[in-house]
Amino acid sequence: MFEARLVQSSILKKVLEAIKDLLNEATFDCSDSGIQLQAMDNSHVSLVSMNLRSDGFDKYRCDRNISMGMNLGSMTKILKCAANEDVVTMKAQDNADTVTFVFESPNQEKVSDYEMKLMNLDQEHLGIPETEYACVVRLPAGEFARICRDLSQFGESVVISCTKEGVKFSSAGDIGSANIKLAQTSNVDKEELAVTVEMQEPVTLTFASRYLNSFTKATSLSNVVQLSMSPDVPLVVEYRIGEIGHIRYYLAPKIED
């Protein structure tokens, strides 16, 4: 038996919003420790890794490990049926071929359940080693979304250049070029408004703006986004999911032809 209850169904809605731009379907791997998801986008260029810890749920029970392959379009339709203030419970029997979503209004006067067919997905998992990154930048998630949106008007690529002074985002194309420099915040009153750089060595890397824009669909999950970069390895874009977990996106830097 698997059962996971979240008082804030809006978290699940936001998680889905954060992944459905990149993925059509995904396997939710449920175990005693929580729910994990790892999937590459269709083009195998980027990867989504999500973790929701069992202790972050209001109730969590997972007697046997269960992998639930879900069509994210169908899941979106079902979660649209939940009000933001509803309590959501996901349930499945062991070896089940369906999952049930139960939505309860805060006053318990309305209870709805939606059963969704599961899919057998043959998804490849990649082993991602623990990595020390040359630069780790934290900045307001809304600012990062704005920068990605603004720069994608100029070109297909965004150059991210990080030094101890700050971080610079650049793009160039047919209409011209654009540079956005963010200085490291000198005095931090509020962490969610700060720009911070932890740097071992300066790094300059080039990324596809289309994917960066897709990653920013997670903006509503967190006030802060963390970018981890090293020369010649994939960028990690991480958003915390409240007190319950995180979502990470991986994207390899473009290389010279």
């Binding site: 590459m40 195998h44 260029v45 980027s46 990867l47 490849e124 998992h125 990649l126 082993g127 991602i128 080693p129 690529s157 080039t206 596809a208 390895v233 994939p234 991986y250 390899a252 830097p253 473009k254 290389i255 010279e256 032809d257």
Partner: peptide
């Protein structure tokens, strides 16, 4: 121009 590598060029499937 620049090429976009696949993630499998960096991480091993398991």
């Amino acid at each position: 121009s620049r090429l976009q590598p696949f993630l499998k060029d960096f991480y091993v499937p398991h």
